[in-house]
Amino acid sequence: MSYNNYEGFRVGLGGVTSEKFSQKYKIDGYTAYGTKDGVFKYSLGGAARIGNYSNSWIGASYTDDVREIASTSFVIDKRVFKIYDPRPINVSTFYNYQNYRAYLETKIIPKTESIWQMVYSKIDPLFGYSYNLNGHLIDRYTMTTAMVSLQWNPFSDYMQTPTGRLEIEKRFPKFTFQFTQSLPNILDNDFKFNKIDFRAEYEKKYLNGQKSAVLLEAGYANGDVPITHLYNTSPNNLTKDKIIQRITFSGRNSFETMYFNEFFSSQYVKLQLKHGFKRIFIAKKVRPAPVIVTRMAYGTMEHPENHIGIEFKTLEKGFFESGIELNQIYKGLGLTGFYRYGQPIAAF
C-alpha cells in the first residue's frame, strides 16, 4: 500500500514464482488499484531460462500503469515495490503507459548484470500537456525503443552456483549504465531520440560506526523527447508560501527544497554527499543518528518551447542545498532540515 496525490491510496498485490515452481520458467505480475483515480493497474510477464551458468533469461511482459513524469528509472534495478518510499506522497503529475516488452536478462559478462530489451509503448500524459513536433501538437503518442541497462560492480566478490553467479561481498564503487534508442518508422513510433543515463555509488564504513556516501547521477537526452521522458532530478518540496505548509516526508536522495515540477532538463548532472555520525545517546529509546547532506545539480534544456501546457525553469545556474538529518530518533522516526543556497526559502 502506498499513497500519492493522483491515485490516492494505491493498494495491490504482486509476486514472482520461485524455483519450487520451476527452475526453467518463471511468471511474474502485479495488480494495483487507486482509490482516488478509480483505475486498476496491472502487469503480467513470463520468462524462460536459457543459461544456467550466466543465469540468463528471455522473456516478455505487458504493463498498464502510471509513472511520475520525468522520473529517472534504471531498468536493471527491477524493484517495482518498495517497503518504504515516502517521496511519492506529494507527486501529482503522472502519465499512463502501456508497455509491450521483450527482454534478455543475463550475467554473462563478469561482475555485471544486464537487461537488453525492446519496448513498444502507448503514452498518455495525465495532465494538460502537448509536444510540438515539427509544428504538430501531440498529446498522446507511441514509442518504440531499444535499451540496454547494465550494472557493473568491479570490486565485489562473486560465487558461481548451479543456478547462476551470486554477489556475496558487496564493495564500492558501483556503476550503472543505461542507453535508450528510439526506433524510427517501427510500429508507428512518433519520436526520434536517444538517451544515456549513468549512476555511480560509493560508500565507506568506518570502525567507529560512521559512514560516508557519494552518489553521482547524470543523464543526456538528444532529439525529440517529450517531458514525460526527460529529467526532473527528484524534487520533494510543496508549492506553498509558508514554511509550516511545506513540512512533509523527506526522500532518500531527493532535493528537499526543490518544488515539484519546478525544473526540467534534457541534460543534467547531480551530486550528493552524505556523512553519517555515530548515534547519540539521549535516553534509552531516544538515540538519533545525525547525518549531514549536501546536494547539487546542473542541467540544460534543448528546445523548451516544444513543451506546451507546463511551465518550468532550467538548471543552467545550478541548484544547491545542504541540511541535517536526525534519523531514528524514536522507533525509526526522525527529523530533517535543509537550506536552499541563494534563494529566500528553506524547507523543514
Rank of each mutant, 00 (worst) to 15 (best):
G8D: 12
F9K: 10
F9G: 04
R10G: 08
R10E: 15
V11E: 08
V11D: 02
G12N: 10
L13W: 07
G14M: 08
G14N: 10
G14P: 15
G14Q: 09
G14A: 04
G14H: 07
G15V: 12
G15W: 03
V16I: 13
V16N: 01
T17L: 03
T17A: 01
T17W: 04
T17P: 07
T17N: 00
S18D: 10
K20L: 08
F21L: 08
S22Y: 02
K24C: 01
K24M: 06
Y25E: 08
Y25V: 09
Y25G: 06
Y25Q: 10
Y25R: 09
K26D: 05
I27A: 00
G29F: 00
G29A: 00
G29M: 00
G29V: 01
G29S: 01
Y30G: 13
A32R: 14
A32K: 14
Y33S: 07
Y33R: 03
Y33P: 07
G34P: 11
G34L: 13
G34T: 02
T35E: 07
T35G: 03
K36L: 07
D37I: 02
D37F: 08
G38D: 14
G38S: 12
G38P: 05
G38R: 13
V39K: 08
V39D: 01
V39Y: 00
F40S: 10
F40I: 05
K41L: 05
K41M: 07
Y42G: 10
Y42E: 04
S43M: 12
S43D: 06
L44A: 05
L44H: 00
G45I: 00
G45A: 01
G45H: 03
G46W: 14
A47M: 06
A47P: 01
A47V: 02
A47K: 11
A48Y: 15
R49M: 07
R49N: 10
R49K: 15
I50P: 03
G51W: 03
G51P: 05
G51F: 04
G51T: 10
N52V: 08
N52Y: 13
N52C: 06
Y53I: 15
Y53K: 15
S54E: 13
N55R: 14
S56G: 13
S56H: 08
S56F: 13
W57H: 06
W57L: 06
W57T: 04
W57K: 07
I58V: 15
I58C: 04
I58M: 12
